[in-house]
């Protein structure tokens, strides 16, 4: 096995984690990883020597993710899909998930894909602002504001979840 392939293999666990944080559902996330790996293998020549395989692969996967999210939004196909989503969301997905994990995973899914990706790359995957900005193809300032807004949104959603747990009483 050549070195490049070995390096790519070694990144799969990290790619899967990133995909899972973007998509939640395990099979869907692995499908995204598979798309990413296929694309990467077709473009092995684009991988410059010395470039971190992780950054290269994450960049490819992120673009696949964002492109599809945009297409879906533009086509308005979301309306056709909740059956799938119902399954995805209804799954007690990861048995390991505790309630707290499930809540934060749900909240993460609810923030905009751009913010979600920025936050995850830095807060979970541990990339620097410069690295993450480069992967996402945005200026550092944009990345920072996505992270800040993403965190605030996430916190707001978690507060909201806690609030919604108590039944709302509407005053008329």
């Amino acid at each position: 096995m050549d070195e490049k392939k070995a390096a790519i293999l070694g990144e799969i666990p990290r790619l899967r984690r990133y995909a899972r944080s973007l998509l939640r559902d395990r099979d869907s996330a692995d499908d995204l990883v598979q798309d990413c790996l296929e694309r990467a293998l077709m473009r092995l020549d684009n991988w410059q020597t010395g470039e971190s395989p992780r950054r290269w692969l994450f960049t490819i996967m992120h673009h696949l993710f964002i492109d599809q999210m945009r297409k879906v939004n533009r086509r308005g196909e979301a309306a056709m899909l909740p059956l799938e989503a119902g399954e995805a969301v209804a799954q007690p997905a990861e048995q390991l998930e505790g309630i707290a994990s499930r809540e934060i995973i749900d909240a993460l899914q609810a923030i905009s894909p751009d913010r979600r990706a920025a936050l995850v790359l830095v807060a979970i995957e541990g990339f620097s602002y410069a690295e993450a900005a480069n992967m996402l193809g945005v200026p550092a300032g944009t990345l920072m504001s996505r992270i800040a807004r993403g965190r605030e949104e996430l916190r707001g959603l978690l507060d909201d979840t806690a609030r919604r747990r108590a039944i709302r009483i509407v005053e008329k």
């Binding site: 973007l22 998509l23 559902d25 879906v72 899909l81 119902g86």
Partner: peptide
Amino acid sequence: RWWLAAAAAVLL
């Protein structure tokens, strides 16, 4: 599959 789920997750 994955982008269906992604889109749906957005909606749901």
